[in-house]
């Protein structure tokens, strides 16, 4: 029975319940819906929001090093604190926050396997108290570029034919889900995927109770069926980099991939930028631009009126 590459990276709800008041441990909730934390959270847990806490309000980027240090200090997180992330949606956002903490070099990060769902299923208590912890001082490192891919690097990676994963839904990957009326802020101009990217929708990493699938199942999917190599450089992307941070976590810590990066710009950047290669359809190399132009010319009515 294979084990996860780093089994200690996951903690159970039982472990968390036993460490609620451990001063060396800080529990952090990150959700898609912030009101969930308000409705009830793990006792003593602080909230870190992916948008209002971790993203720069002006520039499209993460908060800078100084802001990250302030955030940790305010939440009572010291450099040697064990930070346990959990959240809704099978820990999407928890993995995203985990990834940002790794970006700034926080050593001891864990994920509570199963997140909010498993905590509830296990019948553990929810708290609505306002949580504050004694302030710390925190010194972060510079951003760790080894886990973050920027656009030009993704382009070089794609041209070199290296391992590339698109973790969005099949409809998004094929370029079908594009029509977004009344939704000017979030869409991409073009639909499709990066040529060569293999589609492995993120839910394939998770069980129904929000926990990660077993090492055996994950190995079967990524290593045996998709023939991915642990040593080959790998990049994962989605729409805004959140779902792909979950896949990044799975590859890096549960399967032991040596060099895997999250492309946080993801489709929201790629599908809007000029001259980025795009293909459509179910195959990694999709439909070529020439064929597509021909079929578009014949197509009536137009797909996007």
């Amino acid at each position: 029975m294979p084990e996860y590459a780093q089994p200690d990276i996951l903690v159970s709800t039982e472990w968390v319940a036993e460490h609620l008041t451990d001063p060396r441990v800080r529990i952090v909730e990150s959700d898609e819906d912030r009101a969930l934390y308000v409705q009830g959270h793990v006792p003593g847990a602080v909230e870190i929001d992916w948008q209002t806490d971790l993203q720069d309000p002006l520039q499209r980027d993460y908060i800078d090093r100084a802001a990250f240090e302030r955030l940790c200090a305010e939440r009572g997180i010291a450099k040697d604190t064990t930070v346990v992330f959990y959240g809704d949606k099978s820990n999407w956002w928890a993995c995203y926050a985990f990834w940002v903490f790794k970006l700034y070099g926080h050593a001891d990060c864990r994920i509570m396997n199963g997140g909010r769902k498993r905590w509830g299923l296990d019948g553990r208590p929810w708290s609505t108290e306002r949580v504050t912890h004694p302030r710390t001082t925190y010194a972060a490192t510079e951003q760790d570029g080894s886990i973050r891919a920027l656009r030009d690097e993704v382009l070089r990676h794609q041209k070199a034919g290296r391992q590339l994963l698109d973790v969005r839904s099949p409809e998004e990957y094929r370029g079908e889900r594009m029509h977004m009326p009344d939704y000017p802020n979030e869409g991409a101009v073009r639909g499709g995927h990066v040529p060569g990217a293999v589609n492995v929708p993120w839910p394939m990493n998770c069980n129904d109770d929000g926990t990660f699938r077993s090492a055996k199942e994950l190995e079967k999917l990524y290593i045996r069926e998709l023939k991915m190599k642990r040593r080959s450089p790998t990049i994962a992307y989605c729409r805004i980099g959140e779902r792909s941070s979950l896949t990044w976590f799975v590859l890096r810590y549960l399967l032991g991939f040596g060099n895997v990066k999250n492309y946080d710009g993801s489709w929201l950047e790629w599908g809007n930028a000029v001259r980025m290669p795009i293909v459509r359809g179910p195959e990694p190399h999709g439909t070529s631009a020439a064929t597509r132009a021909a079929s578009d010319a014949c197509a009536t009515p137009p797909v996007h009126a």
């Binding site: 912030r34 929001d49 948008q51 209002t52 009326p181 009344d182 939704y183 802020n185 805004i240």
Partner: peptide, 18 residues
């Protein structure tokens, strides 16, 4: 808007429009 951030409010705006 400040509490939820731009990405989340996009969905809410589309609800109003709908």
């Amino acid at each position: 808007v400040e509490v939820l951030g731009m990405m989340r409010t996009g969905g809410l705006r589309s609800i109003v429009a709908r």
